[in-house]
Design a protein around this nucleic acid. Structure first.
Lengths: 130, 130
DNA sequence: GGACACTACATGCATGTGCATTCAATGCAC
DNA sequence: GTGCATTGAATGCACATGCATGTAGTGTCC
């Protein structure tokens, strides 16, 4: 296919930015007001829920989480600290590699995520369907 | 058309987020390293260039700019302060409404934008063409 | 085993952002 | 005109983020 022209690129970028900004803003507002969660905090909870197999909560590493929510390692470290303080996740030392930290959901964290999912999906439906 | 399912919505949102994060990050890095401009600062300069008609630089209001780059009014106020400190724009009182502030490009601002455009377009081409 | 490079995470610091507030100017009702 | 709500922008403040650095644990080469 032919390469897009500069004006097309700029237009595409602006559209992308506008959608992202509007959606992220709405998401942050709704999740924060109704469930006391920031957007990235919800995303991290969701990754943990997805990683869960069967009963035992998955234990993901800080760096995996950081990469998957587009935050720096330091930002994730503090984000996990906030979630831990709120009782939604737990840090535990990784058995195999004691430098690593395993992050896993608490029951409260799972509940909070379950509560927030409808809000999240509803905002996405509002913002992402033209 | 049929409403997208929840997994489709989530997938679309993650894709959007990933593209935005990667592009914004690359844009910030390149513009900052090579031209001393943040992404939003470049966007503001670009809006001012676009608003220019003929010789006389357009004078846009703080709020118009804020809306068009998805920042809050306070963020824009400080962003303009940074650009002004760098000599790239000038604030001037709006004649009709003396509450308002007209922001307009200086020649240095126009030059800086012109220098940065190729970098900007090149990053967009890299990140936005699959 | 000892030295060294490397990895995973935590933390000090600087910065950019949003919210709430403040201040000045405007417009409207009377 | 006077009073009052409204608007445009600047600012104090709290907070989240990234970068650079510190610390502990791991692996490798000799």
């Amino acid at each position: 296919m032919s390469a897009p022209s500069d004006p097309e690129l700029v237009e595409a970028w602006r559209t992308l930015l506008a959608r992202q900004a509007a959606t992220a803003c709405a998401l942050d507002r709704e999740l924060s007001e109704r469930h006391g969660l920031g957007m990235s905090e919800f995303e991290v909870l969701e990754r943990l829920v997805e990683g869960t197999s069967g009963d035992c909560a998955a234990s993901l590493r800080i760096q995996e989480l950081a990469h998957s929510v587009h935050l720096s390692q330091s930002a994730l470290s503090r984000l996990i600290a906030r979630l831990e303080k709120a009782g939604l996740v737990e840090r535990s030392m990784c058995a195999e590699d004691r430098r690593g930290v395993s992050v896993c959901l608490t029951p409260a964290g799972r509940d909070r995520h379950t509560d927030a999912v409808p809000t999240h999906r509803s905002v996405l439906a509002d913002m992402l369907t033209p």
